[in-house]
């Protein structure tokens, strides 16, 4: 078991982290190319300030706590704070940042980390509950929507239990291996699932920009489908 843990901490971590980074680059490079190189000339009049303002409005989304979504929105908002801060700033991970990237990050302290972890898990369970029991959410949820929520809960729950032996009914090494493997599976899933929004979250807002239709495209489509000169 010890060797498995070492393998998961070492080469497997490096490999999965690399897959995540390369996978996200694969998504972001075409976006940057489209916006800043290929369409640079036609995007002169784009209101970038509005796009940035709209994106930032979701960082403190007070005006977005609208009727019918308050529980979901609150749970989602707090969950996002947890999933960003805990994995990066928890003391055990600070060591990893230093080891792999030589970056010294501030720790949030064990006490706060514990509370934040539990709150994050609770929020994720609320989101899971909403998706399961609310009619309009269930109507359009597929396997991956539930699976990814569980996949995010798993490293948080296993990490908490591994660092709190008093509450952990399982052997420590089993819990630690679960924590490592689930987190690494999450790394791999990020660029290939909707979790890619961690990096693409602001690119949807440029969708108005994408609607820079190519002049003459309609004619080419009509010609390809119906032949030259045939009425659409």
């Amino acid at each position: 078991m010890e060797q498995w843990i070492e393998f998961a901490k070492g080469p497997l971590f490096t490999l999965t982290f690399l897959i995540m980074v390369l996978g996200l680059l694969r998504l972001i490079i075409p976006q940057v190319y489209l916006l800043f190189i290929r369409k640079r000339d036609v995007l002169r009049d784009v209101k970038w300030s509005k796009i940035i303002k709209d994106t930032l409005s979701w960082i403190i989304p007070i005006k977005h706590f609208i009727s019918g979504t308050r529980l979901f929105s609150l749970a989602s908002y707090i969950m996002h704070i947890g999933v960003i801060i805990v994995p990066i700033c928890i003391i055990d991970h600070i060591v990893l940042w230093e080891k792999f990237f030589n970056i010294n990050l501030p720790s949030i302290g064990q006490g706060l980390a514990d509370y934040l972890t539990l709150i994050t898990i609770a929020c994720l369970l609320i989101l899971l509950g909403c998706r399961t029991f609310k009619k309009h959410q269930r109507a359009m949820s597929g396997f991956m929507d539930y699976f990814l929520l569980i996949m995010v809960i798993l490293p948080f729950a296993s990490g908490y239990l591994a660092s709190h032996p008093n509450y952990n009914p399982f052997p420590w090494d089993v819990m630690m291996l679960t924590h490592l493997l689930s987190a690494e599976l999450l790394f791999v899933l990020i660029p290939f699932s909707k979790l890619a929004h961690i990096i693409l979250f602001n690119f949807d807002r440029t969708s108005g920009v994408h609607w820079q239709l190519r002049p003459g495209a309609g004619d080419k489509i009509a010609e390809a489908l119906f032949g030259k000169g045939v009425k659409i």
């Binding site: 989602s76 969708s207 994408h210 190519r214 495209a217």
Partner: peptide
């Protein structure tokens, strides 16, 4: 349509980000 337009980029982005959170329903 995909061959002659820029919709592919848009669709790729939406596929990668649509979290289906359902806030749009309200």
């Amino acid at each position: 349509v995909l061959q002659f337009t820029d919709y592919r980029q848009l669709l790729d982005t939406y596929c990668a980000t649509s979290a289906k959170c359902n806030r749009c329903s309200v």
